[in-house]
């Protein structure tokens, strides 16, 4: 069953003024429970606008957003419910930290959900453990932590709300490769362990390709495609035409294909690449 669905979702900024812009144009998507969706699209393609509709931060100009089959704009209660069901972690989440200790900051979300003290404590500790925040770090001020640690505390703040759908906007931006891999790894683990649906917004596919199950491609305010990673990369050339980058390994195989080698082009991890080379080894001379 689709956990998240949009029907003809359209959103315009500054309606009724000469500056009116359509940021999202007639989006129809259906996301199944348990998927790990990568949302890709370049700057200004409507990614951020789209995800802010999922937990009701933006009200659609027209169309509907259904979480668990329920229209989130039906009533105040349904909107509040959606806020907690869909956890949204913004870009550079470390800039939203404000509490005296990391523990209190992670507890901010669960506290707003009016949970019991014990439940809050359980959730905070669990989320902290997930993202590798130690007990010692929990007692310290979040402003004394390093950039990567701050980011993980902030992500834990959203995870602690235990949302059914976790959405992360560019969770790896501004991090070094090591920090990036760490964040992506823990997101993958989080999904496997909790079975929740996860969405990662990114403008580079290089890292999300490895962990995603589905890819949602956005281009100039429209949903271009929503498909498995395999299917999406069969059309790697189209994605590149939109000004988006594809993983380096995909580029290599596209080049090989162009040179006349009988390889598939929807290769997006090095492991797949090795397999593919092995597969064609017998067929082509000189390999």
């Amino acid at each position: 069953m689709a956990i998240l669905k949009t029907e003809n979702l359209t959103y315009c900024y500054s309606t009724g003024t000469p500056f009116e812009v359509t940021a999202l144009d007639n989006a129809n998507i259906e996301i199944d429970d348990g998927e790990l969706v990568a949302v890709i699209g370049h700057t200004g393609s409507g990614k951020s606008t789209l995800i802010q509709h999922f937990n009701g931060l933006l009200k659609p100009t027209s169309g509907k957003v259904l979480v668990d089959g329920k229209d989130i704009w039906e009533s105040k209660a349904s909107l509040r419910e959606a806020r907690f069901k869909v956890g949204l972690c913004f870009q550079y989440p470390e800039y939203q930290l404000f509490e005296e200790t990391s523990y209190k900051d992670i507890a901010f979300g669960p506290k707003n959900m009016k949970l019991s003290e014990e439940e809050i404590d359980r959730r905070v500790r669990k989320a902290a453990e997930f993202v590798g925040v130690t007990d010692d770090m929990l007692e310290r001020s979040p402003f004394d932590l390093s950039g990567g640690e701050k980011r993980r505390v902030a992500i834990a703040g959203v995870m602690a709300m235990e949302p059914k759908i976790l959405i992360l906007d560019e969770p790896t931006s501004g991090l070094d490769p090591k920090g990036r891999d760490k964040i992506l790894g823990l997101i993958k683990e989080y999904r496997q362990e909790t079975g929740s649906t996860v969405m990662i917004v990114s403008h580079s596919m290089e890292d999300v390709a490895k962990i995603a199950t589905k890819v949602l491609v956005m281009n100039s305010s429209k949903v271009m495609s929503y498909d498995t990673v395999d299917e999406t990369y069969k059309r790697a050339d189209e994605i590149m035409q939109m000004g988006l980058d594809v993983p380096q390994i995909t580029k290599i195989f596209m080049g090989l294909h162009e040179k006349g080698f009988p390889v598939r082009t929807n290769i997006y991890t090095v492991e797949q690449g090795i397999e593919e080379i092995k597969r064609i080894r017998g067929q082509v001379n000189g390999l």
């Binding site: 806020r83 949204l88 913004f90 800039y95 939203q96 901010f108 979300g109 707003n112 703040g157």
Partner: peptide, 12 residues
């Protein structure tokens, strides 16, 4: 931006 982020964490 910060308002949206805190709202997403259930700030009322």
């Amino acid at each position: 931006k910060i308002t949206s982020a805190q709202k997403a964490r259930g700030a009322d």
